[in-house]
Amino acid sequence: MSTEPVPAASASDPGDAVDAILSATGVSKIFGGLVAVDSVDFKIPRGAIVSIIGPNGAGKTTFFNMLTGLYKSDRGRVEFDGVNITNERPDIITKLGVARTFQNIRLFGTMSALENVMVGQHARMRSGLFGSIFRPPWTRREEVDVREKAEETLKYVGLRPALMHQMSVNLSYGDQRRIEIARALASEPKLLLLDEPTAGMNPEESARLTAFMRKLRDERALTILLIEHDMKVVMGVSEQITVLDHGEKIAEGSPQEVRHNERVVEAYLGSREARAVQAED
């Protein structure tokens, strides 16, 4: 392993003793000549909130895409909840219990907030061609349940009820972020991946989202993996932080450990984030 071993702190030890809901071993992705992710080992303890940080272009989103099946990894293995999901199709991974949001919001533009969240439940629904056409009682019931659950989820993420039937393209950025999280939650995930969820939010909104993530984890027994630029959010919410730079994992550990890691400071040196890291001290 190329990564420098970080002194283990018991709470965030990613070692074998911990029950890992997801583990990636030696995962790599190469675009043309560019090694976007370079044999990264990574574990998420069940029930934890874990972050991946790193400068722009470090390979964070690419890593996410490999975990969720959008990219095929060139090397390595990913296991989720004891199942090998390496290079599995995205819909199958979602069905197994991994849900995500996108860095650049990808809602279904002409669908209402509610319909977006209903699509999120696709993997948990059963009605097929027959059910869709003939609409037997169980399909009707399923539709009603799905609609109710979508409403409930949207309320849970704090969307104003008046906006539920609005077309999602017409909604504000913040509301779109909420809907995207609701859509992900609707698929009943065990693991939720959020790609820069606070991008474009003001400090107040970010703080609210941070609190919401904790609430999610506690109320819904979720494990959360976060890509985040806002150090305040990262340091405040994460139990474990993994730092990527140029596709390589350069550090891992508790917020305290990562903050003082030399390579991390080096990677961030001069950048806005570096000052943020230091300021947290």
Binding site: F108, M111, T139, E143, V146
Partner: peptide, 21 residues
């Protein structure tokens, strides 16, 4: 229907659709 929604989803953004299951 569920299928109809899935079709809209696919035609507007099949990457997001696949990611939603």
């Amino acid at each position: 229907s569920r299928l109809g929604r899935a079709w809209i989803a696919i035609r507007e953004d099949e990457i997001a659709a696949a990611s939603m299951g």
